[in-house]
Simulated assay, not measured.
Amino acid sequence: MTGPIGHLMVGPRSHGVVRYAKSVFDAVSVESADHRLAHMRTLGAGVASGLAECALVHVHVTDRLFGRTPSQARDNVLAMIAALRRPVSVTLHDLPQPSDGRAMHARIDFFRSVARSATGVIVSSRHEASLFAEYVDASIDVEVVPLLFDTVRVDKPSASAESTVGVLGYLYPGKGHLETLQAMSDLDPSIGFMALGTPSPGHEDLADDLAKIAADMGRRCTITGFLTDDELRRASAEVTVPVAYHRHMSASGSINSWISAGRRPLVPRTAYTDELAARSPGVLTMHANDDLALRAAIESAFANPASTWIDSAVTPSPTAADVGRTHERLLRRWSA
Rank of each mutant, 00 (worst) to 15 (best):
A214D: 10
T326V: 06
T69E: 06
R264E: 14
A183T: 01
H105R: 08
R112N: 00
V323M: 04
T240Y: 07
I255K: 02
T326R: 06
M249I: 03
D26E: 14
L51E: 14
Q97R: 13
V145C: 13
S185P: 00
V239K: 08
Q72S: 10
I310C: 12
V283S: 07
A33Q: 15
H127I: 00
R332A: 05
S49E: 03
F149H: 15
S257C: 08
L56S: 01
A21S: 09
H60F: 03
A55I: 04
S29H: 15
R233V: 05
I310P: 10
A161R: 13
G46I: 11
D205I: 08
A45V: 06
D229H: 03
I298R: 02
R153I: 15
G176C: 10
E231G: 10
L196M: 05
L284W: 13
G174M: 06
G176I: 08
A313N: 12
M286W: 01
F302S: 09
L37V: 14
R85H: 13
M184K: 12
A251K: 04
E128F: 05
T42G: 03
A214S: 12
R153T: 14
L210R: 06
V152G: 06
Y170W: 06
I213W: 02
V314F: 00
S257W: 01
S163G: 05
G202M: 09
V123P: 11
T308W: 08
S252K: 01
P96S: 12
L210A: 12
S99Q: 11
L168P: 12
V77G: 02
E204T: 01
